[in-house]
Simulated assay, not measured.
Amino acid sequence: MSLPTTSRQYSLPQLGSFNNLVLKSVTLNPPKSHEVLVKTHAVSLQFRDLMISSGKYPYDIRPNVVPCSDMAGEIIAVGDEVKDWKKGDRVCANFFLDKLHAEKTEAIAATALGGVVDGVLTEYRTFPAHSLVGIPDHLSYEEASTLPCAALTAYNALLSGPDPLKGGDTVLVLGTGGVSIFALQFAVASGATVIATSSSDEKLKVAMKLGAKHVINYKATPEWDREVLKATNDLGVDHIIEVGGNSTLPQSMSALKIGGCINFVGGLGGAAPPADIVFWSIRKSLTIRGVHVGSVAQFKNMNRLLIANPEMTRPIIDKVFAFEEAKAAYGYLQSQAHVGKVVIKL
C-alpha cells in the first residue's frame, strides 16, 4: 500500500484568535531513516493552545504554526534505521520531542510541539523515533491523546519530584481541568486523600465520584484555604496542584503543610500582586516547583501506573469534536464548561 503524499492540517497564519485557524492540504514527505510516520487518530486540547492562538503565549511561536501538542495515532511507516517501532503500533508523541530523561536545556525546550515547532493538528506527521511512547492497550485513541501534556504534567508534579507523593498524603487540586482531574485520579490511585476546589457544584460532584474526599466551592467559600485547614485538622496539605498562579498563590501557601510542596502547572488566574513568597517559604519550609510537562522516561513510568490501575486512572473526556470542528472545540475549551479533556477526533 502506497504512503499518503498529502496531509490536511490546521495552521495559524495570524495570531489573535482561534477563529484564525485555517485548514488546508500540504505535501507530506516520507519518513527519514530515523523517523516514523504516524496517522493521527485523536488530538486533545490544552489551555496552552488557547494562549498560543490568542497571541498571549509568553514563549516563541513558529510563524504559521501548526497548533496542538497532544496526539495519539498509528504508525504507518518507519525509517530504515528505526528498530523499536513497526507499522501498526499505537503511539503518542512526547510534548518535548527531545526530552528523553530529566535533563532540560534550551535546545530541548525548543522541541515543544505546537509552539516553536509545528504541532499535531494534522492528519499525518513524522516524528523522531525516540520521541514516541506506546499507548496502553486498554485505552482508546481519544483517551490516549489526553496523556502527553495533562496526564504527564500531573504525574510529574506528584510522583516525580524531590518528595514524591506517598500513601496517606493529602493533595489539594485547584479546579477540574485536565491536569487537575488527572492529579486527582493519580493521587487516589496512590492512596492519598484529595481535596478539590471548583466554582461549580456540578463539577465538584464529578470530583467526588472520582474519589475526592473533600470538595470546596471557592465562589461560595472565598476563603477556601481556611476550609482546607479545617479539613486537615489545621495541618495543611502535603501537595498542591496550583493552576491559578499569582491570584491563588497566597491562599495556597496558607493551605500548605509545613514542609509541603506547591506544584505550579499554570496561571489561569492571570496576574495579581504576588504574596510574600520569601516570608511564607521560610515560615513553612515550603517548596515551590514549576512543572513543565515531562520526559519520555516519565511518560513510560506513568503508563505503568495507568496499566496497574486501569479504571481508577481512565482519562475523563468531556466532549469529542470532529476534525472539521476544530474551531468549535477551541471555543468549548475557552468556555470552561468542561470537566476533564476536550478532544478532536480524526
Rank of each mutant, 00 (worst) to 15 (best):
G245L: 08
S140G: 08
P274W: 09
L204N: 06
A272N: 03
V228K: 00
L204S: 00
S254D: 11
L172E: 11
Y155Q: 04
S247C: 14
T248Q: 07
P222M: 03
S199Y: 06
D225G: 12
E202F: 08
A196K: 05
L210K: 13
S252A: 07
I240P: 03
K203N: 03
T248S: 15
T232P: 14
D201H: 13
D169N: 11
S252I: 12
I258F: 15
A271Y: 11
Y218A: 01
D276L: 12
H214I: 12
S252G: 13
G244R: 01
P148R: 05
M208Q: 15
E143L: 07
N156F: 05
A255N: 03
A231F: 15
V215Q: 02
Y141K: 05
P273G: 00
K230C: 08
F182I: 14
K213D: 07
L172V: 01
A183I: 14
G178I: 06
G266M: 09
G266I: 12
L165F: 09
A272C: 07
G236V: 02
A154V: 04
G191S: 09
A151Y: 10
I241E: 06
V206P: 00
M208K: 14
S180Q: 12
Y141P: 06
R226K: 15
E142F: 00
G177R: 03
S180F: 09
G266C: 11
E143H: 13
G168C: 10
E227I: 00
G236L: 05
Y141S: 02
F182K: 10
T146H: 09
P148F: 08
W224N: 00
N233I: 00
P274G: 07
F264C: 10
A192Y: 14
F264E: 05
S160H: 13
L152E: 01
T221G: 01
S190V: 08
L184W: 03
K205S: 08
A212L: 01
P164A: 12
T153F: 02
N263V: 01
S160P: 05
L174Y: 06
F182L: 10
K205Q: 12
G260Y: 02
A151C: 05
A220K: 15
I262Y: 02
G161C: 11
V171R: 00
F186Q: 10
G191Y: 13
G178S: 08
A196Q: 12
T248P: 07
E223P: 04
G270S: 06
V171Y: 03
L204T: 00
D276Q: 06
D276G: 03
T153Y: 05
K230R: 15
R226Y: 03
W224C: 01
S254W: 00
G270N: 04
G259T: 09
G266S: 14
